[in-house]
């Protein structure tokens, strides 16, 4: 399948450069440090456990939550090359003159990035699994946190791919994806709180990524939240395809 070939290329491309390795080792270090800090504070005073959710809630969910925050910066760094880099090196012409459709190109790119998201998820997964040796873990909360982390990273990656399709300047692509992510992650709630019109306010609040993400870290998998993420990912994939189709019109 052509999508998998493109995904594989995208993934290889990340690991061919230092970036992927730096990100993976950075995340390992950060997750490890947070784990040590959280475990220490938990041991010092177990009753502080947030909302009485136990060790999984205080430590594992917090770590996944924090890791998804890291992806506000990591996703744009990874995705800025996916189209901007190809435009800049003119390698996009290889893709555009091959007998493949824009949708296949975009899906392939996104799939490659999602695979990287999965690989990164292994790090907090393994590090927090080490807690098994000392305590019991809440499997349900564990996996809802993991699912939340994956959905949020996939969303950020897709937004990054879209931003990267806008320009052949990689820095600009990274900045705009950080902008879009920050806006959808929590700025949108800020804006909503300023608006006095009810309908607009609730519409804006609905767009907030963090609002839809937080239930996952509390052990809730709401189908409405899952659908929200699927919708937003699909929207940005479609926008990217449209953007690339119109790229041929402008340049």
């Amino acid at each position: 399948m052509i999508i998998f070939s493109i995904a594989q290329r995208e993934l290889r491309n990340m690991f061919n450069s230092l970036l992927a390795w730096i990100i993976l080792s950075g995340i390992s270090l950060i997750v490890f440090l947070i784990l040590v800090t959280l475990v220490k504070s938990y041991l010092d005073n177990p009753s502080n456990s947030i909302g009485g959710v136990g060790v999984t809630g205080t430590i594992v969910s917090t770590i996944f939550y924090f890791c998804s925050y890291l992806f506000i910066l990591i996703a744009p760094m990874l995705t800025m090359r996916s189209f901007s880099g190809e435009f800049k090196n003119k390698t996009s012409q290889l893709l555009f003159s091959a007998p493949i459709s824009m949708s296949e190109i975009v899906l392939g790119k996104c799939l490659g990035l999602y695979l990287f998201g999965l690989i990164t998820a292994v790090i907090p997964l393994l590090i927090t699994l080490s807690l098994v040796f000392g305590t019991q873990l809440d499997a349900g909360l564990y996996f809802s946190s993991l699912l939340g982390f994956l959905l949020v990273t996939f969303t950020f990656m897709t937004i990054g791919v879209f931003a990267s399709s806008l320009t052949d300047h990689m820095g600009l692509a990274a900045f705009s994806s950080i902008g879009i992510i920050l806006f959808l992650f929590w700025l949108v709630e800020l804006v909503a709180s300023l608006i006095k019109v009810d309908a607009a306010q609730s519409a804006l609040q609905y767009l907030s990524i963090s609002k839809h993400a937080s239930p996952f870290y509390n052990g809730q998998v709401n189908s409405s939240d899952v659908i929200f993420f699927i919708l937003i990912i699909t929207t940005f994939i479609v926008l990217t395809i449209r953007k690339l189709d119109s790229y041929r019109m402008q340049h």
């Binding site: 290329r9 491309n13 061919n16 090196n89 003119k90 390698t91 012409q93 003159s97």
Partner: peptide, 13 residues
Amino acid sequence: LGFLPEQPPLYTE
């Protein structure tokens, strides 16, 4: 169709 653009579309890595 095979196309070689002005700047060859190579992945140099």
